[in-house]
Design a protein around this nucleic acid. Structure first.
Length: 559
RNA sequence: GCCGAUGUAGUUCAGUGGUAGAACACUCCCUUGGUAAGGGAGAGGUCGAAGGUUCAAUUCCUUUCAUCGGCUCCA
């Protein structure tokens, strides 16, 4: 463990000391080092963010005292005696598999902690850390446990690194898709429809471009577009098993003594289309793709801008195939993902999500499915992480995550290998011996949802979309009244691009400022000189003067 | 859903126990301009909502809705 992690560990310890001094009735939870800092959980602690300043001050004072950390190994029985007033520590002690546990002693304060810590607080710069925020967190991450008060701190080796990180957070705030979405007039949210996006004209341009781009890739890989109903009787989800697993998170409509659900996913409908004909082994794989509008009643506290919505639009797809086609078909999907994310210049991270506790089917089938997925990942030389027990109830999956401006990881694409639902619905095809067989099903989304992907792209580009994705690509500014006609003539010649003419009676400077603020890739100015020479003066986003040029010359720039 | 924070004009924000203010945007007038804000005037707000305390609440209290940062969850 490096010095920075030791510092973070030690500071969480110091935080506990400061809290226990001021709030002796508080009970200790866990206090680990994390990325960029540390936290500590406490029960029976009622504080607000106001109080953090004072606690931080006390921590700085303690750090300056050159306190030594003494590590000691003691028996579990001794530890139980030592922490008899600390119920959460007792529970942790119980679960430690070793005979002994390690404790750290600083003055009168003793903490149960594997460490390591710095030897003395003189190794810590008192200006290199900062208490950040308060949050609730369930003990051991389990909703059934009580909620503790978690205090987060940022901590680095030096003040410079802390400042750098704070600077990064300030920059991330500028890239926030919710802010840029408002500034660039892309979308809005309204209290009457929480978690549902209102797409404005410019946002819709991006949406449509992404949709067309995705559909082109789909077409290339042999997908056929379909569209299925928005609501259906709950029988459908009872059969699929979703009713059992998710009925509390579905929007339900009671009418004429029947229960209808707004669809939370598309799979059962795709299966129904598959079943409208008798299928031959020669027909497979059958590849359906659907822009799926699904609704899930995500808990209010989980909603988050475009990243987490209740009305979700997926670039969904379902493939019905034979077992011998699994490997090749998943390979194709991975190839599609590389094409898609490569074109957008986004780095995807891969994860294998394995059998959850509430799985459906036989363990043997699951093991095989997981092996199949691993094999393809290995074949593509993909380094992947493991998300244990994170698969869907009907099958394991390959999840693809990308990061937002704050470095948070969000799942976008997913490839799910499903041996269960086709059987549940009694899907069949006739094999070469004339026998009925159950097909395998792949569920896959390439960019996940339009909502989340747009949010990610906004933050990724900080609103400076590549030319092809920019809602307005060119802004033409006539210098004076007399140049308006020429400006519109230029617009006509640039009709293959999305062009706006700023012909308001305002100064050139002001119009340039407005266009630049809107992050438009090119600003064209036309005045006497350009009219006379039949040219345009071009300025590229980022304040780059490309000078005067022929219109055709400009068109060639972005061809 | 839980913990913490926030909510004032279209937007970004000031402000106050005596029913509100700036900048930008908007409308009109003047200005006809050469690379990031030309000048003037005007309009715009039941201070998120509902209760309560008070002679008086945007301000204090309670409840509620929405948003943000976490936790949990994510088919």
């Amino acid at each position: 463990m490096n010095q920075e992690e030791k510092i973070r560990h030690s500071l969480s310890h110091i935080l506990a000391i400061a809290i226990k001094e001021k709030y002796p009735e508080a009970k200790l939870g866990i206090g680990p080092a994390i990325q960029n800092g540390f936290y500590y959980d406490f029960d029976n602690l009622n504080i607000s963010e106001e109080d953090l300043k004072e606690i931080e001050k006390r921590m700085k004072h303690l750090v300056k005292q050159n306190i030594n950390f003494e590590k000691k190994e003691i028996s579990k029985n001794e530890a139980k005696e030592l922490f008899k007033e600390e119920p959460y520590k007792l529970e942790l002690i119980k679960e430690i598999p070793n005979e002994t546990v390690s404790i750290y002693k600083t003055g009168n304060f003793i903490d149960l902690c594997a460490g390591p810590h710095v030897n003395s607080t003189n190794e810590i710069n008192p200006n290199s850390f900062k208490l950040q925020k308060i949050a609730g967190a369930y003990f051991r991450g389990d909703e059934k446990n009580s909620m503790l008060t978690r205090i987060y701190g940022l901590a680095f080796e030096s003040k410079e690194k802390l400042d750098e990180h704070l600077e990064m957070l300030a920059e991330a705030e500028k890239r926030d898709h919710k802010k840029i979405g408002k500034d660039l007039d892309l979308f809005s949210f309204h209290p009457e429809a929480p978690g549902c996006v209102y797409w404005h004209p410019k946002g819709m341009i991006i949406w449509n471009l992404l949709e067309n781009f995705g559909q082109e890739i789909r077409k290339k890989y042999g997908y056929q577009k379909i569209k299925t109903p928005q609501i259906a009787k709950n029988d459908l989800w009872i059969t699929s098993g979703h009713w059992d697993h998710y009925k509390d998170d579905m929007f339900i409509i009671n009418t004429e003594n029947e229960i209808y659900c707004i669809k939370p996913m598309d799979c059962p409908f795709n299966i129904q289309i598959f079943q409208t004909k008798q299928r031959s082994y020669k027909d497979l794989p059958i590849r359906y793709t659907e822009i799926g509008h699904v609704m899930r009643n995500e808990k209010s506290g989980e909603l988050n801008g475009l990243f987490r919505v209740r009305e979700i639009t997926q670039d969904d797809s379902h493939v019905f195939l034979r077992e011998d086609q699994i490997e090749e078909e998943i390979s194709n999907l991975i190839q599609m993902i590389h094409e898609y994310y490569g074109a957008l210049n986004i780095e995807p991270s891969f994860f294998l999500s394995t059998r959850p506790d509430n799985f459906m089917g036989e363990i043997k089938t699951w093991d095989k499915a997981e092996e199949d997925l691993k094999k393809v990942l290995t074949k593509h030389n993909i380094n992947y992480g493991l998300k244990e027990k994170d698969g869907a109830f009907y099958g394991p999956k390959i999840d693809i995550n990308v990061k937002d401006a704050l470095g948070r990881s969000w799942q976008v694409a997913t490839i799910q290998l499903d041996f269960q639902l086709p059987a549940k619905f009694k899907c069949e095809y006739i094999d070469e011996n004339g026998e009925k067989k159950t097909p395998v099903m792949l569920h896959a989304a390439i960019f996940g949802s339009f909502e989340r992907m747009t949010g990610i792209l906004i933050e990724h580009y900080a609103g400076n979309f590549p030319f092809w994705l920019s809602p307005v690509q060119v802004s033409i500014i006539p210098v004076g009244e007399t140049h308006k006609d020429y400006a519109y003539k230029v617009k006509e010649e640039l009709k293959e691009f999305r062009v706006e003419v700023k012909d308001e009676a305002e100064t050139v400077s002001k119009k340039i400022r407005e266009s630049a603020t809107q992050k438009i890739p090119y600003i064209i100015t036309v005045g006497d000189k350009e009219v006379e020479n039949h040219t345009i003066s071009v300025r590229k986003r980022g304040n780059e003067d490309l000078g005067e040029m022929q219109i055709q010359e400009f068109i060639n720039l972005e061809k």
